[in-house]
Design a protein around this nucleic acid. Structure first.
Length: 561
RNA sequence: CGGGGCGUGGCGCAGCCUGGUAGCGCACUCGCUUUGGGAGCGAGAGGCCGUCGGUUCAAAUCCGACCGCCCCGACCA
């Protein structure tokens, strides 16, 4: 029943005052979602149709790679999470039952799925295996935001692959890449698959699927043939002009100039002509001096990867006692390892002299200090990849795929016997997709000043049929017949049969964003043609004769798919 | 967790500074008119002013505590 007069579609002329992100404003205004609490959302009927259409695409593509759908519980014993060491995670919702037993609200399902596999899988003959489900996840987010983009409860498709070795894992991973590429393509998004950070999970590979949009929380570096999360992106730095070389470093009087900006101002130098020292304390290694070009910034994710150990910025005391006066430290003469960022080219730079109120000019890496080369800076717009300048766009992470290895299988005893009868740990991968984020990203990417403009594949309705004229009029009777014809023909049609003005109906149709709008009114009676209009583009469509309505609409829908 | 802002009918807001028993627009109900881009006239319904406490003859308004929500940052396997 999709007569608007009998449907729940609470459209609003004005967005809630606290809604800022475009998708937040439009999804509420279009009557798709309503907020229950911070980061907690109800999907109203039309919104849920979008959600379901996305889920259907996800299911089809996962089934196509042989993944098996199942369903695991949201509430789980805390014990499982203690065994994998994830119980202390702050975002994990913890609760107790009436007897005081400790439970959690699952944020993902590695623990449960792995414990099942540990019990069920015995032999290499049982592998490989890909299991998935669509299930609610709970996360005690420090800051829910932007409507449905970052919430405390959300439906996620998560799949898990189980293989006998790394080669098998890589194969399952590759299959997921195929499925994911098709899913995001079919959903009609603008998307990128980017290299991701493997993080502390210690996996061997990770990619993120990113949908560029203004409300995105991540940043993606893009160049022709290149896409990476800025957390891990690598690019060739824009060159800077450096002064003439000196035979040896020479001291400069720089009283009180403890920052790059201050030194630059004092000496009339641009930041890129200086070297910035970033002293860090690395676990089991001690103090290390990281040197970057003055205009570059340390990327903490890349630094963590380069150091391969936990680290923290050195304290002022450590700097003063082991290196020099804070604000004036540098690599020349420093008695500690120096890591030189890849963005630093050969040439003379100005840098701290390890003496109060003093810098050195003419400092040349290699000649004046020994170093180990690392790549730990954040790339910037205009840096080069393959000779082309990169751009940096905000994006929302709509999916991720991750090679887990044996972290969970070892913790939970998921193993199998190989052909030789030897027990082996199972190699795992995990793969997530946020359904709501796909919907929100599509809203963000394709909305215009009139409202949402859905990709046809995930629109709540394929056709929005607007009936004009008074109830009981000849045009209304015609509209009724068109509606029944389309409905019986299996078209997803929303029929606006309300008693409302034409402007209101058109505005609601444009806000809700179905790809095709049909209008039946007095003009239809006069011309003998139903007016057809696409939500996207401004191409005028030929009218449709009422007798041909079903065939013509089916043809139009096919052309939009 | 740090910084900022906001809680008054379904939505958007005014009233608070200067205390005196709540108002506007939209939406809603009924009637008449209107009917291809968010209509007109008339008549209505709807609010423990986030909660608790304090000050006062009197609190939406002043004071305190708490709760909730939003934004920026931190965080986000």
């Amino acid at each position: 029943m999709t007569r608007l007069s009998r449907y729940l579609l609470p459209t609003e002329k004005e967005a809630p005052a606290d809604a800022e992100a475009l998708s937040h404003r439009l999804m509420v205004r279009a009557g798709l979602v309503r907020q229950v609490g911070s980061g907690l959302w109800t999907w109203l009927p039309a919104g849920w149709r979008v959600h379901q259409r996305i889920s259907a695409i996800v299911r089809e593509e996962l089934d196509a790679i042989g993944a098996l759908e199942m369903l695991m519980p949201v509430i789980q014993p805390a014990e499982l999470w203690k065994r994998t060491g994830r119980y202390p995670i702050e975002e994990l919702f913890k609760l107790n039952d009436r007897r005081g037993a400790e439970l959690v609200l699952a944020m993902t399902h590695e623990e449960v799925v792995t414990s099942h596999v540990a019990q069920i899988v015995r032999s290499y003959r049982d592998l490989p295996l890909i299991l998935y489900h669509l299930q609610v996840k709970g996360r005690d987010e420090p800051r829910p935001r932007a409507g449905v983009l970052r919430t405390r409860e959300f439906v996620m498709k998560d799949s898990y692959s189980f293989d006998r070795d790394q080669e098998g894992l890589e194969h399952s991973y590759a299959r997921h890449i195929e499925a994911y590429d098709r899913i995001f393509e079919r959903a009609g998004l603008r998307w990128y698959r980017v290299a991701g950070d493997v993080g502390v999970m210690g996996g061997t590979g990770a990619h993120e699927y990113m949908a560029p949009c203004a409300a995105g929380e991540n940043e993606v570096a893009l160049a022709p043939g290149y896409a990476a999360n800025v957390e891990v992106a690598t690019a060739q730095a824009k060159p800077v002009e450096l002064p003439a070389a000196l035979g040896a470093p020479a001291a400069l009087d720089t009283p009180g100039a403890t920052t790059i900006a201050a030194v630059g101002g004092l000496l009339g130098l641009e930041a890129g002509a200086m070297l910035k020292a970033f002293p860090v304390h690395v676990e089991e290694r001690g103090l290390v001096l990281v040197m970057l070009r003055g205009d570059h910034r340390v990327n903490e994710v890349k630094l963590a990867a380069a150091l391969a150990a936990p680290w923290r910025p050195a304290s002022a005391e450590e700097i003063a006692s082991a290196i020099g006066p804070p604000g004036f430290i540098g690599p020349v003469g420093a008695q500690l390892p120096v890591l030189l960022d890849a963005g630093v080219a050969d040439g003379p730079y100005v840098t701290g002299a390890n003496l109060a109120d003093t810098h050195l000019r003419g400092v040349e890496p290699g000649r004046d200090f020994a170093y180990e080369r690392v790549d730990v800076r954040s790339v910037e717009a205009g840096d080069l990849v393959g000779g082309a300048p990169i751009t940096i766009e905000p994006a929302i992470e709509v999916g991720n795929i991750f090679q887990l290895g044996t972290r969970y299988s070892k913790a939970l005893g998921a193993s199998f016997l190989d052909e030789q009868g030897a027990e082996q740990a199972i190699w795992m991968g995990c793969y997530g997709i946020g359904i709501a984020r796909i919907a929100a990203a599509a809203v963000e990417q394709f909305a215009d000043e009139r409202g949402i403009s859905w990709p046809a594949a995930i629109a709540p309705f394929a056709v929005h049929l607007v009936a004009l004229g008074k109830p009981g009029s000849a045009e209304r009777e015609l509209a009724e017949r068109v509606y029944e014809t389309l409905r019986e023909g299996g078209v997803d049609v929303l029929y606006d049969d309300r008693e409302a003005g034409a402007g209101e109906k058109f505005a609601d149709a444009e806000l809700l964003g179905a790809p095709l709008r049909l209008t039946v009114g007095r003009r239809t009676l006069e011309s003998g043609e139903i007016e057809a209009q696409l939500r996207r583009g401004s191409v005028a469509l030929a009218g449709i004769a009422p007798a041909d309505a079903l065939a013509a609409v089916e043809e139009l829908c096919r052309s939009l798919a």
